[in-house]
Nucleic acid binder design. Structure first.
Lengths: 230, 230
DNA sequence: CCAAAAGTGTTCGGAATACACCCATGA
DNA sequence: TCATGGGTGTATTCCGAACACTTTTGG
């Protein structure tokens, strides 16, 4: 490649955005922030960051995750590149997007609030800056598929959860209602949750039993090539 | 963004690569070419091209498709961005990869040969330049998933095909053998192929009936939200 | 006459779906 | 006492998997 060609081609910027899903026990939510710079000052958008020419995009996405959740051990995955020519008025910026799932508790909600960020309800995302609505739509589809194939539901729930919570999560992600009895049958059949002695009565007058995810068993099954299938 | 920041960030190049799948009636194949420039002169690689700062990557991928097949009406789809820092010795180059499926006939094979390109067998891809082996691995996984959900098999076959050819294609893509009777049952059940009066005896002494894909019916079913499911 | 691919049905088990009532409790 | 969510079982249907023999015909 000649120097002139290099001029022509090495003239693009990369950004990453992160679609973080959280579940509050009732609704799926997505983390958004207010943009404090031009362009689009004041608009809401996904946590995002430009990538320097010597930075790995995976690492930048991990950094975003860390900054917004203080967590480091969360699985994130690239969605795809969003690369329309005019998506950013500053110049040609290609966005490489990621998604991740996080346990959403009051502490994290407070932390986000203090940073001027909000967890907005899955089904009520407003118009966002850039093409971030497209990114979220894509992420929702990915989550739908993943939730059917892998037990990622558990990464959105607290360590101990009720079957109702789990069901609500699936209903949110797959956007349809499910039969309680069939849902339980399927979940218990999967052998991937452990009954505990604990109960919860925060959402009902009757106590609900708490369960936890059997991560060890899942590891073993994955190794053998089995797959969670919802 | 300050001018200094712009210097730092707008210093990346984008390339696209295209994983083109073709089926010759017996084996799935992928189009590869010999690299004629440094770096990696002489190595094999995927059809690829740098993206100018004002070009849409989708368009560049379509151009690649057109140049390599003379076809324009072929569905291609982005895979994802491959963005390791040191994947290209010229500088920071992020590769946005696509895949597509094409009917592979003798004419196309000849055309490719004249261009110094080859259709290599799916299961016998050599070590390639850059990280193109990673891209192909990813594309194979995507094809596997797609073939189960959408009737893309038909876009790889000639207009008229035998059930055996279709089965071979599925066996190639999914990398496992299938039972002839069950396969036929499933395919006929899908209602998506039309029996014709034509037969073929090129691969057997007994004549084999030729079928064609019922594209119209598929459109209708898709609209209603049904899905092909293999 | 034989090799090679085409074509054809049945059985079984497991999973998905549809569906309705009682229980425990806090208000 | 009643409203709220927790918890439970059965019948039916559908799908996938396993499995073996006959047909045609070119060589």
């Amino acid at each position: 490649m000649s120097p002139q060609e290099k001029e022509i081609y090495f003239n693009v910027a990369i950004s990453t955005s992160l679609v973080l899903f959280g579940f509050d026990g009732d609704k799926l939510r997505i983390l958004l922030k207010k943009h404090d710079k031009d362009p689009y000052r004041g608009a809401m958008l996904l946590p995002s960051q430009y990538v320097k020419y010597d930075e790995a995009t995976d690492k930048v996405a991990k950094d975003l995750l860390l900054r917004h959740t203080k967590e480091i051990n969360i699985y994130i995955e690239q969605l795809k590149a969003f690369s329309k020519v005019f998506r950013n008025p500053l110049g040609r910026v290609v966005n490489i997007s990621y998604y991740g799932t996080v346990k959403l508790d009051d502490k994290l909600v407070k932390y986000s609030e203090n940073r001027g960020e909000v967890w907005l309800e899955y089904s009520q995302i407003p118009d966002l800056a850039f093409d971030h609505n497209d990114i979220i739509d894509y992420a929702k589809e990915r989550l739908k598929r993943r939730v059917k194939r892998r037990p990622i539901g558990f990464y959105l729930l607290p360590e101990y959860f009720t079957i109702s919570q789990l069901q609500k999560l699936y209903e949110n992600a797959l956007n349809r209602e499910m039969d309680k009895r069939n849902f339980r049958k399927k979940i218990f059949n999967s052998q991937l949750i452990i009954e505990t002695e604990l109960t919860d009565n925060s959402s009902s007058k009757k106590f609900a039993r708490l369960y936890k995810f059997d991560e060890e068993k899942y590891e073993k099954l994955s190794l053998k090539g089995y797959d969670f299938l919802f």
